[in-house]
């Protein structure tokens, strides 16, 4: 039973990691129906920014918790700037183009950013400091859940709730929903669609940056390539949950994380990905739009 509980919590953590990244995928897809393959790279850039800022602050002698806070804020700002710029440079000029064009542009952007970070930083693995302090009350449960895992799960839940409320009740959230439903109609009723799309990219990138910093703290190492695998898994999670749906991304990510954890725990980690992707295939056979997705004719 304890083993089961450990696996459950491990899977929950992994699912939360995927969810933080999947939220950005799903938001962008919901608004402009584009799979933003560069999203994983935004996550990676967030982690790198966090590392650089944290290194600088440690040198200047800031106290522990403030380093985490400032590093997070800087990573969010920097990644949001990247997300905004990528949208303007790589996607906006292609908004009227066939749907495959922005997709290719996104893949290109992803490769470009990876190589840019590799050349400007390093291709080596870098150690990431443990910025998340150890909580005293968790000490005796350390074998089950560490403080960094708790922080990640909490951050994911808070982001998901916050995002849902934001979309439901704020003016910008309503504009987003309107744009998602029908961009032309939204324009006609006076919504600044370009601004809404930019805002979507900024919010998605900010979440990815938070994920980048927190996950890097948890794992303890980063390099230019981390965005790729995390991005693929998060994308899978978003599709699993129904791409375009925010609670769907969260549920998809949790299902994926738990499947992987239990497959590893009770079968073998050799087959971790086999189980994860078999599940994806199964769900898509019976629910083509994903767990929470709405059925509609798709063009891609």
């Amino acid at each position: 039973m304890e083993y089961f509980l450990e696996l459950l919590l491990g899977g929950l953590t992994r699912g939360s990691i995927y969810a933080l990244i999947a939220l950005g995928y799903t938001m962008v897809y919901g608004i402009i129906e584009l799979i933003n393959f560069a999203h994983g790279e935004i996550y990676m850039i967030g982690a790198f920014t966090g590392l650089i800022v944290a290194g600088l602050l440690t040198m200047l002698g800031f106290p522990g918790a403030s380093i985490l806070a400032i590093a997070l804020i800087c990573a969010v700002i920097w990644s949001a700037a990247y997300g905004y710029t990528i949208e303007k440079v790589a996607y906006k000029p292609l908004r009227g183009a066939p749907r495959l064009s922005p997709l290719i542009s996104a893949i290109g952007m992803s490769i470009f950013l990876q190589n840019y970070v590799m050349l400007s930083q390093t291709s080596d693995f870098l150690p990431f400091p443990e910025l998340i302090p150890e909580f005293g009350f968790l000490k005796e449960y350390n074998s089950v859940m560490s403080s960094s895992e708790l922080v990640i799960v909490a951050a994911t839940i808070l982001s998901c709730i916050g995002l849902t409320l934001f979309i439901k009740f704020t003016k910008l959230g309503k504009a987003m929903r309107a744009t998602a439903q029908n961009r032309k109609m939204a324009m006609l009723v006076g919504i600044n669609v370009n601004m809404v799309i930019s805002a979507t990219f900024i919010i998605g990138s900010s979440l990815a940056a938070v994920g980048g910093v927190l996950i890097a703290c948890h794992v303890g190492q980063i390099n230019y390539y981390i965005g790729f695998i995390a991005g693929i898994k998060a994308f899978t999670a978003a599709v699993l949950g129904g791409i375009g749906s925010i609670p769907g991304a969260m549920i998809g990510a949790l299902v994926l994380g738990l499947t992987e954890a239990f497959a590893t725990g009770y079968v073998s980690s050799d087959y971790e990905d086999v189980f994860a992707f078999s599940l994806l295939v199964l769900i898509l056979i019976f629910r083509p739009a994903g767990i929470m997705g709405k059925e509609k004719t798709q063009k891609v």
Partner: peptide, 20 residues
Amino acid sequence: FEGVTPGAVDYSAVVQKIKG
């Protein structure tokens, strides 16, 4: 005797298995 996927975000499940 197990293989892990290189680059996966964390290995806590395998680690629990080692413990178990």
